[in-house]
Simulated assay, not measured.
Amino acid sequence: MTDQSFKFPRFFVTAPSPCPYVPGRFERKVFTELKRNDALEMNEALARIGFRRSQNIVYRPSCDDCSACVSVRVAAREFKASDSQKRLLRRHADLEVSACEPWSTEEQFELLQRYVGSRHPSGGMAMMDAYDFADMIEQTPVDTVVVEYREPSTDDRPGRLVGACLTDKQSDGLSMVYSFYDPALATRPGLGTFIILDHIVRAARAELPFVYLGYWIEGVDRMTYKTRFKPVEKLTARGWVRAA
């Protein structure tokens, strides 16, 4: 398969809107629709040049006089966990992980609401209702799963859902579309980091080279975590380059 195996798509640009990350700036996105007959090939090809998927749309920033958003991915097969990351892997090793079909559940939506209410109360997803959530999970023309993280089962009953990630499976890796978790569990610190670590471990076991983490902006505290998984690659004008 090559990146030229599909018909070149038609792109559109959104109207400017206030940037949620850099005060005083405005963001625009260039986007196109994923068509069912070539969605897999198109999604993978565009992911390699910095696009992200949302339902049946792929997009990337296209802002005037700003290139702060940088696509990042972890080289999974070369990943070396830090001491603190190793401790997190051990601490949460008892969680039961399942790759589920992309079908939304009430339990997932309730978990998302707790996460967004705590971590992103003023973000766009704060207004999401159950129907919006179902669209986010179920409207996918590509190979997608919901990876669930549950506490150990008891008496043949599934354990409590404490984390989840909408994940696209690609030929060159895993793309973490959106992850969320219970932010109030004192007994489960670092769940967000653990979910990324688990994806990296699973990608490496499957001999997939990368885990795509989306966009990173230098100096934005809530994005700093994305560069703590070594080695990490950043998309530049010269292509993907290994970060120092």
Rank of each mutant, 00 (worst) to 15 (best):
E107L: 12
S104G: 08
M176K: 00
D168N: 10
F133D: 07
Q170E: 13
Q85D: 10
L95T: 05
P121K: 11
V70E: 15
L89K: 02
R157P: 06
C66K: 11
T193G: 02
A75L: 15
P141D: 07
K169Q: 13
S67H: 14
P183R: 12
T187V: 05
P121E: 11
Y178D: 04
E106W: 11
H120Q: 12
Y178P: 02
Y178A: 01
R114Q: 14
P183E: 08
V146G: 04
A130L: 15
V177T: 06
V74R: 04
T187W: 01
T193R: 07
T154I: 11
A184P: 01
V97T: 05
Q113V: 11
M128A: 14
S84Q: 11
M128E: 12
V162Y: 09
L161G: 01
P189W: 11
F109C: 08
D172N: 14
P158T: 06
T193Q: 08
V70P: 05
Q139D: 12
L174A: 07
P158W: 04
V116A: 14
L166M: 04
L111G: 06
M176W: 00
Y178M: 08
V147C: 07
L111V: 10
T187L: 01
V72S: 01
A126H: 13
S71C: 10
G190D: 04
D182S: 08
D168P: 05
A184N: 13
S71M: 09
F180H: 06
G163S: 05
L161A: 06
P141G: 11
M127R: 15
G159Q: 01
V97A: 08
M176C: 12
P141V: 08
A75E: 13
S122F: 07
D94Q: 15
D132G: 14
F194R: 00
A76Y: 08
D129K: 05
L89D: 01
Y181R: 02
R188A: 05
L88F: 05
C69Y: 14
V145S: 13
V147I: 14
L88P: 05
Q139H: 13
P189F: 03
H92D: 01
R160W: 02
R119Y: 08
V146A: 05
D94I: 05
E151A: 02
D168C: 11
R157G: 02
L89Q: 07
R150I: 00
V74T: 02
K169R: 15
S179R: 04
I196A: 02
V116T: 11
A184R: 07
R91T: 01
L88W: 08
T105L: 12
G117R: 13
R114W: 09
H92R: 09
H120S: 05
L111I: 09
M128G: 01
R73N: 09
P183D: 07
R91W: 02
T187K: 13
W103L: 15
A130W: 10
W103Y: 12
D182F: 10
V116Y: 07
E138T: 02
R150Y: 04
P183V: 04
M127K: 15
E151T: 03
R188W: 00
F133V: 03
P152W: 07
R157A: 15
D132H: 14
